[in-house]
Design a binder for these strands. Sequence first.
DNA 1: AAATAACACGCAAACGTTTGCAATAGCCCG
DNA 2: CGGGCTATTGCAAACGTTTGCGTGTTATTT
Lengths: 341, 341
Amino acid sequence: MQSKPTTIKEIAQLLGISVSTVSRALHDHPSIGLTTRAKVKKLAGELNYEPNQTAIFLQKGKTHTIGVILPELSEAFFSSAISAIEDTAYKKNYTVLLAQSHDDEVKEKQLVEKMKNHRVDGLLVSVGKNTSSFQHFENLKKYNIPVVYFDRIPNIPNIHYVACNMEIGTIEAVSFLLKKGHRAIGMINGPQTMVATGERKEGYIKAMTKNRLKYDPSLIVSCDLTEEGTKKALDDLLANKRKPTAIVTFNDYVALFAIKYAQKLNIKLNQDLEFVSYANLPLINYMENIPAASVEQFPYLQGQKATDILMDLLHHQDKGSNEQSAYYKIIIESQLIENKK
Amino acid sequence: MQSKPTTIKEIAQLLGISVSTVSRALHDHPSIGLTTRAKVKKLAGELNYEPNQTAIFLQKGKTHTIGVILPELSEAFFSSAISAIEDTAYKKNYTVLLAQSHDDEVKEKQLVEKMKNHRVDGLLVSVGKNTSSFQHFENLKKYNIPVVYFDRIPNIPNIHYVACNMEIGTIEAVSFLLKKGHRAIGMINGPQTMVATGERKEGYIKAMTKNRLKYDPSLIVSCDLTEEGTKKALDDLLANKRKPTAIVTFNDYVALFAIKYAQKLNIKLNQDLEFVSYANLPLINYMENIPAASVEQFPYLQGQKATDILMDLLHHQDKGSNEQSAYYKIIIESQLIENKK
DNA sequence: AAATAACACGCAAACGTTTGCAATAGCCCG
DNA sequence: CGGGCTATTGCAAACGTTTGCGTGTTATTT
């Protein structure tokens, strides 16, 4: 009962014709007669013939498969991105090979090797936060495997990437609060080491100066993004000589920690203290007490764009050959979204 | 500069020996002399030789790849599960091919075909909530592609699966509410088509009878798991002649929809109405108004076990041949977790 | 009616690897 | 010194496709 899948060879034998004819008939090659074509297709249908992709891969040197390497599948941002990637790839008839680095540089390197051995046509990467060398990715160029980075991109030249710029969104966020009358606006920012922390700070300052307001450094505090750290940061801000009436937080997790803590301190939300955050969590839709607005980073869109770029690269790599000094550098502007309550 | 990957053939040519010798040398075949073996390995190292998996796949008929089909990658439960699957597969040197059905039966069927064409060695499946026929999965048996179902399992015999039994958790959940003094306990259940719906209902009934209480069918309502459906279900329950003081909801999404709606109706949470739910969302930790308790379903563990089973099947399928009437049926007991607020 | 074009199909190589079998060499032993 | 053995290596088929080229048949042209 354990039937092996039908092969082109069997069809050929059964019909008394050659394999090449069968192959061509199946592909509607013009040089095959209509009657033969019909016969072949009929039998193929009856035998439930499905081409063996591995054989085609070997023959064509293309696998119609793209690899995805990212830090953590279970993080909301990435699971949303991978969802987009899979959707987009599926539409173009590509399959996705998945792997997570857990922010481990060594594992990341192994995964690149593995992807190469599996002969993926291209790679989508969001680099681990500890990754310092990007040679393992750069090596792929030699093998003509294009790489598109997204969200967490390496700081090196000559790469394709799509990322989200936090500055604009931050300016919008601060402006939003200013327009609502707030003047003392606090910020619970991330660790100094992260690029995103700098972008947020810059955005904050630009928004203030654009509105001819003085920038008060004491209103920006760092935070390690844990619940405890958030509490401490909020305490600091509330103890400031200029007590903020609104706070921009590094991300939704921090915002929710802060909101929870503020409630415990009997602070009236959206009255004594208003929050604006960065949307890492799609789940915010399900909640009652949420930041008044969020800076959206569009994980789904990022995944989609990155995949589109990769597809484009895959379909044009034969032509432009070595002259292709053009690199995709897509910046998605973050955008403030007012949360409906 | 665009070097093609090194092949075994090139190594053979460079060394003036045959490909078979190279192949065997690389695999430490005993019949190859030590000196040749060393020479081959040295050159292979220098040329950065990596075996072409697609060729090996074709030759061996095995791809060392497992397919995963699940409804929605961006749902917390599944992203946690896929994370476990990838981790476990990685340890056994397998790669995972990923696809989401979006609960669309037609797409699910296409994906099965695609997986088959890609010659995955085995399949991990969580079926879509509307899937009514499972023939597309059953067909894989003929091709000797083992399937392990997890979480959302079809109600058919002779399959391998790992699932979480909702009954125990539900009994615990209802008992928890009874102990708190509730007598009119409502349940917003899922669609009748899902196995999990039945289990919840059974658990509910058992908990009631165990406590010598009468089971009132009007207190259990179905729901399509959407926000609108949830509102309607809650309306129904609140209009019941015996108005419930506590409600068990099908999952956290439903719970949060219900909680949001209840607040809009000015119902005092944890006072007029208490909720218990099933934990699909790790993010519930970040929120203020949450169900009093949740039934944990261990997505990571489920993914892990399912992958282990599949690995086991893959490594023993040659032997037992057709005598294997033994099917893995792993039940993970759900467990009530009281949410700290 | 002969030359030519158009059509339909088959042959065989190629993709990179594995592996059963054959072949060669060197060696020991009688 | 020849027979047999072992240790090493090569040959070639196989996995399932695709595709350039060649060939035979039929239809069209002048």
